[in-house]
Simulated scan of single mutants.
Amino acid sequence: MKKKQKMKMSFRVLILSLFALVCFSGNAQVFEITPTYGYQFGSKLNYGPNYLKMEDSGMFGITLGYEVRRNYMLEATYMNMGSELRIKDRIASPRESRLADLNADWFMFGGTRYFGNDKVKPFFGGQMGFSVFSPDDVDRTIAPRGLDSITKFSFGFKGGVVVMLSDKIGLNFQGNLLFPVQWGGFYVGAGSGGISSGVNAGSTLVLGGFSGGLVFRLGA
């Protein structure tokens, strides 16, 4: 899928998410828009003596939220990470090598509980949804058949603090943990004689990171 198509799909999902939030939050008094940018730590997926590794990367996102009751927000979040996928495989790549660029899109739905006062508000939240991992510019000497995108059920947690600069604008600082369940399933083929190795691990990958952003608070 081309990058422009992915962006169009992401905006469509956000619009649908916003519509869903409006429908399920008819009595909401406050609407928040929170764009963020941060740093996401990579992770490693082991399969036997071999591994696939997702490198550290930047991460941007946007969260749309409605206050369903005071200090309780119902939210839809989109996040994107552009990373690099590396591999060490005793057949395909005995030494660690770059396998492909890797784009990760996250579409998450959940809620956040705020604490504190109107100026400084610590928060904690949970999310669930799905993530799409899309390899690009694959090294065909390692994976001659290329790599397909994979979609996984995902969940996550976040915590941090919002510092309001005024009634309408604030600063968001947060850390997050993301869990794509049973991440894996990339197929890697190697060897002129048709020798191949499969990567189909069943473990849950854990990705942690932190970010900052602006909070635009609209409504009463």
Results as ranks from 00 to 15, higher is better:
59 M>W: 00
61 G>K: 12
63 T>C: 09
69 R>W: 15
69 R>Q: 13
70 R>K: 11
70 R>T: 12
72 Y>E: 11
72 Y>T: 14
74 L>D: 01
75 E>N: 14
76 A>E: 03
76 A>Q: 08
79 M>L: 14
79 M>W: 13
80 N>G: 09
81 M>W: 03
82 G>L: 08
83 S>N: 03
84 E>K: 15
86 R>G: 00
89 D>I: 08
94 P>N: 14
95 R>S: 13
95 R>F: 13
95 R>Q: 15
96 E>S: 14
103 N>F: 06
104 A>E: 12
107 F>I: 07
111 G>E: 02
111 G>H: 07
111 G>A: 03
112 T>Q: 15
113 R>W: 09
114 Y>D: 09
115 F>W: 11
116 G>S: 07
116 G>Q: 03
120 V>I: 09
121 K>W: 09
125 G>S: 00
126 G>F: 10
127 Q>D: 12
127 Q>R: 04
130 F>Y: 11
130 F>R: 01
136 D>M: 08
137 D>Q: 14
140 R>P: 01
142 I>T: 04
144 P>G: 03
147 L>F: 10
149 S>E: 03
151 T>E: 04
151 T>W: 08
152 K>I: 00
153 F>N: 06
155 F>G: 02
155 F>A: 10
156 G>I: 04
156 G>S: 04
156 G>D: 01
157 F>I: 12
158 K>C: 06
159 G>I: 01
160 G>R: 11
160 G>W: 08
161 V>A: 11
161 V>P: 07
163 V>A: 15
163 V>M: 12
164 M>P: 02
165 L>C: 13
167 D>V: 03
167 D>T: 12
168 K>L: 00
169 I>P: 02
169 I>E: 09
169 I>R: 13
171 L>K: 11
173 F>C: 04
174 Q>S: 15
176 N>R: 07
177 L>Y: 08
178 L>N: 15
184 G>D: 03
187 Y>C: 08
187 Y>T: 13
188 V>W: 09
189 G>W: 05
190 A>K: 00
190 A>R: 05
192 S>H: 06
192 S>Q: 07
193 G>C: 07
